[in-house]
């Protein structure tokens, strides 16, 4: 236990210190150095005692089910929307018989889903689309993030690469479709290529901004603490650029998802876009709407996953 003369800080009351407070030797002579007296021994508070004291001062968090209900509450407008849609479709048919085909109700969309699931076809479309977008965005990140970081950090490299990049960037991915079909034929590779192009540029530009806008003071701090160029990059520039990189990948994923659907609408053997186009030729608007709803839902889920991943990878960023 601590003795008189050990360094105990003013806020370290007996409750905070706890019984298992550790006493450490600092190897310092007990001579005062300026404002604070130095001490040869210092008392380190027991972290569990501190945690218990802290917990006793704040109300307990609500149970998990209550928190879940609170989250669900936000979807009330969506529910209203679906109900209104159902009503319009079901009762509007009396006034406009064509509404049957033009705007099928949510229940028809649901039964279309059940129908396709029963035939084992829906999952194939979903999985095919997801596979293409994840592969393409993964490749775009693997190439685009290092390229963007290098462009942001080395001005000469950037001036060399920039004109070529800025020339290709305005060309919409869809304009690449005819050429890509000549190169790759119709299939996964061709669609992955289109999505890659769509996701690539946001990723590069955002990564570049992340490296370029590295905090000058942090870079200088790293340098004056003896960091070599490679260490500086991995310990200062890269972590500092992570928020921008993440934004780039998230935007790239969103744009890539849209490019996926457009690409599949034009030429694809399978996938959600293909399903919509196929349904169009059959005048099955319930399948069309099902495809659209799934596209929206999956896009939302992907974005949600990205945001959670951001919180995990960059816990410090949330606090600021």
């Amino acid at each position: 236990m601590s003795e008189a003369g050990d360094r105990v800080l003013p806020l370290q009351t007996p409750e905070v210190l706890g019984e298992n407070a550790e006493v450490r030797d600092t190897g310092v002579d007990a001579k005062p150095t300026g404002m604070q007296p130095a001490a040869p021994r210092r008392v380190v508070a027991d972290p569990r005692a501190m945690a218990e004291l802290a917990a006793s001062m704040v109300p307990a968090p609500p149970p998990a089910w209550r928190r879940f209900l609170a989250q669900i509450r936000h979807f009330w407008l969506l529910v209203v929307f679906v109900v209104v849609w159902e009503c319009i479709s079901v009762f509007g048919v009396r006034f406009n018989p064509q509404l049957d085909v033009m705007l099928p109700p949510p229940t028809a969309v649901f039964s279309a889903a059940m129908d396709l699931i029963g035939r084992g076809v829906l999952m194939t479309h979903i999985v095919d689309s997801l596979y293409r977008v994840l592969l393409a965005v993964g490749a775009a990140s693997a190439i685009g993030v290092p390229l963007g970081l290098a462009m942001g950090w080395f001005p000469r490299f950037r001036s060399a690469v920039d004109p070529l990049l800025e020339f290709i960037r305005p060309i919409p991915p869809l304009a690449w479709i005819p050429l890509s079909i000549l190169w790759f034929g119709i299939g996964d590779t061709q669609i992955v290529y289109i999505i890659f192009l769509a996701a690539f540029f946001p990723i590069v530009l955002n990564s570049m901004a992340g490296a370029r806008d590295a905090d000058t003071y942090l870079v200088r701090a790293g340098l004056s603490l003896g960091a070599r160029p490679r260490e500086l990059f991995s310990t200062v520039v890269l972590p500092g650029a992570l928020p921008n990189i993440f934004t780039g990948v998230r935007v790239g994923l969103g744009i890539g998802w849209m490019a996926l659907v457009a690409g599949e609408l034009v030429a694809a053997p399978s996938g959600l876009g293909y399903m919509i186009n196929n349904a169009r030729t059959l005048f099955r608007s319930d399948y069309i709407l099902l495809g659209m709803v799934l596209i929206g839902v999956l896009g939302l889920v992907l974005d949600f996953i990205m945001r959670k991943a951001a919180l995990l990878i960059m816990p410090w960023h949330k606090g600021q």
Partner: peptide
């Protein structure tokens, strides 16, 4: 050794193990 030595000199509140693991923003 150096870490403990200078923490002892400075009397940093972050000498407490609980806050030492926390972020500087805190």
């Amino acid at each position: 050794r150096l870490f403990d030595h200078y923490i002892g000199l400075v009397g940093c509140a972050a000498s407490n193990r609980a806050t030492r693991g926390s972020s500087p923003a805190a």
